[in-house]
Design a protein around this nucleic acid. Sequence first.
RNA 1: GCGCUCGUAGCUCAGUCGGAUAGAGCGAUUGCCUCCUAAGCAGUAGGCCGCAGGUUCGAUUCCUGCCGGGCGCACCA
Length: 551
Amino acid sequence: MRATDVLRSALMGIVEEMGLNWPAKAVIEPPRDPKHGDLAANIAMLLAREAHKNPRELAQVFVEKLPQRCADIEKVEVAGPGFCNVTFSQHFWRSTVREVEAAGPAYGQSSVGQGRKTLVEYVSANPTGPLHVGHGRGAAVGDSLARLLRKAGFDVETEYYINDAGRQMRILGLSVWLRVKELAGRPVEWPEDYYRGSYIIDIAREMLAGDPSLPDMEDQAGQDRCYERAMNEILDGIKADLADFRVEHQHWFSEKTLVESGAVKAAFDALTEAGHTFDKDGAFWFATQALGDDKDRVLRKSDGSLTYFASDIAYHHNKFTRGYDWLIDIWGADHHGYVPRMRAAIAAMGKPRDSFDVVLIQLVNLLQGGKPVSMSTRAGTFETLADVVKEVGADAARFMFLSRKSDTSLDFDLELAKQRSLDNPVYYVQYAHARICAVLRRAEERGISLPAASTDGLLAALDTPEDMALLRKLAGFEDMVATAAQALAVHHVSHYLMELAGMLHSYYAKHQVLLGDDTARTLSRLALLRAVGQVLRNGLDLLGVSAPEAM
RNA sequence: GCGCUCGUAGCUCAGUCGGAUAGAGCGAUUGCCUCCUAAGCAGUAGGCCGCAGGUUCGAUUCCUGCCGGGCGCACCA
């Protein structure tokens, strides 16, 4: 926030003048209670010991010197144990409207990310069936996180890792193949592990219709053919479901391709060279325990096949070689035990700890009017992402997924997601935007013309406490984006939007915007509302939620 | 048993790089449309921030232990 920067540099100047150093723990932030001013600084409490003064005494020094250094400061006082509480002038806050107008959709953009090359890998569900609700949460979080990080100045790309090389894929091929044979009236013996979903039968039926001689193939060949077809079909379905959910990955990365490229061997060699591997019991091991894991892990089993971990190491190694220096993985929370070994792998690659982060996505409990919806594979229940999106819409689903911390479990009530009330926050926020648009439309109808860029004079009539509160909130948008991005916490955006929408609704109820007899005030309030609308749009865009002009 | 994680209002959840009197919505309850969208607003009630210690000027926030919930602990993926 501009106010924070202004105050920080003024305070730094004073600290320097006193011959002291700026402590790392110095914080400048809006106090909880707005009565304490716009910003509070704890600097005096931190420097008290070094300056041989009591905190309040030292704070008094700052209070006396600040106004000379900063014309925008209207009031500054010592409070509590030694805070410096600063209030900026109304004129200063009003200029926020002009900043929003100037930046438009780019308002909130910052450069705290310094262009760091970042890869967000998310969803990455095995292509063995349609995406379910849990994947949807991961999809929403990954997509919004990428948007958020870009807004904060990171250079972000997104990726879906296709697990097309392992056991699950063999089972998928087998499942379809057996269905094909069954449909053709051949005798079939069902193994313990196979995919039972109805989509498997659909694929088998299509394949059989396309090639009636298919069941005559040899088992292995038939199974391979089925695997190929089924995976592609399911992958297409996944892509379509994601597109309907407004999620698009820039890269689709195949595990199979990775394995065939020899990347696994290269990764093994690199680990061995660094002395992190050993042979035991006929298997090839990675000594992760020395790097913080519970125990050492197998990379190549005694039967010669690779573990999932092996190709995952190669995959992450490959990400680094592609030039990314921050890897963010979005995983289901049931994989949290996997984090230490992946961290061990990153460490073994010689990469710093902060080059790899995992965002864990907790379970989604699907409810219907407060009662749990069966998550079984039975038809007719809402289990897939596509079903849920169809039922409640992408906006409601995304907002719901993004309004809670991602690592706590989430109750998703289908009834509630369709309700048009404050129970359902997405409508509350969208309604605020639509209301603003309605007022702007009405103004236009009445022939009131608001210049695209307002001036100090035009904004001068913004002088109520509610005006100031909204302006401060708008000014804080960039900070919110930056801290949310760095904390990988998308839900901060939803909460900010809820607060901003609440303030707007409250303002709307209290202050008439279109005032027949007071043109100056009308114009200034219209400009403020337009700025609020812009910030609501920018925030909703980070969530991938639409901002309707009418509801 | 070990590890990770969570425990904040009746319910669902924010907040916490240590700061002043802990917030929101729902539910309960009382009001508000001759006026820009009532999908809204204003008010009231509701809290040992799981428990006990420790660190400090100051702890809901950090540390330790305990209690309770969730998840994980494969030569599975």
